[in-house]
């Protein structure tokens, strides 16, 4: 049986992620869990998360989940969403906090001086709403999703990948920023596939079938 652990470290609503995965993979066993053993035992691992990065890191550690999450990034299909993407990197400007350091790079705030649109109007932060996801590389998780499809974003910080080869897709909001990274068994996105209607469901379905 295809089992997926959705890592619950107390940051945000995980119900939507669980329901979306159950919707696209009715045969799978979906478990929202804060038990490191359950994360270790699952075939696939999803790390969502919202809120402030320092709180997320603290809550992750408070539940003793750090080693299990790091192990998952090294061993099985892993999907990071939003803060679940950001925490993979070495550090974040948000609260000047260290991440898991699984991938090289850092997390930065959208710089105020660049928040100007093509028409001269001000771009808002948080970057909230549906924006185009432009592919940098082909990947199994994009299967059946047209390049440039819109996904739902809500965030004020973005990832600056330390290696260009990590970048799976980019989005433009004042500046082009990395909105998806891929490396071996890791795929992680800034947007919310669980809230991105058909495109998001397609991506989650691809993840559940993915054999990296």
């Amino acid at each position: 049986m295809n089992t997926v652990a959705i890592v619950d470290y107390g940051m945000g609503n995980l119900r939507s992620v669980a329901k979306a995965i159950e919707h696209v993979a009715p045969q799978a066993r979906v478990r929202v869990t804060s038990d490191p053993a359950a994360v270790a035992a699952a075939d696939r691992v999803v790390v969502p998360g919202q809120g402030a990065m320092p709180d997320c890191m603290r809550e992750l550690d408070a539940r003793g989940l750090r080693p299990a999450v790091i192990a998952a990034t090294q061993s099985k299909p892993f999907l990071g969403i939003c803060i679940g993407l950001q925490m993979l990197f070495a550090s974040s400007e948000e609260g000047d906090v260290a991440g898991l350091g699984v991938l090289p790079g850092r997390v930065r705030r959208f710089p105020h001086e660049l928040m100007v649109g093509p028409d001269g109007g001000r771009l808002k932060v948080p970057h909230m709403g549906w924006n185009e996801v432009n592919r940098a590389e082909p990947h199994a998780l994009w299967e059946g999703i047209p390049d440039g499809s819109r996904f739902y974003f809500v965030h004020s910080y973005y990832v600056e990948a330390g290696e260009p080869s990590l970048v799976a897709a980019f989005t433009v909001h004042g500046l082009p920023f990395t909105c998806a990274v891929a490396q071996d068994n890791i795929f992680a996105v800034q947007f919310h596939p669980e809230k991105s209607a058909q495109s998001g469901l397609a991506l989650l379905g691809n993840f559940m079938r993915w054999k990296p």
């Binding site: 939507s16 329901k19 919707h23 919310h192 669980e194 209607a197 469901l201």
Partner: peptide
């Protein structure tokens, strides 16, 4: 609603 509708 959240079980069936996958938008914000």
């Amino acid at each position: 609603v959240a079980e069936q509708v996958f938008i914000p």
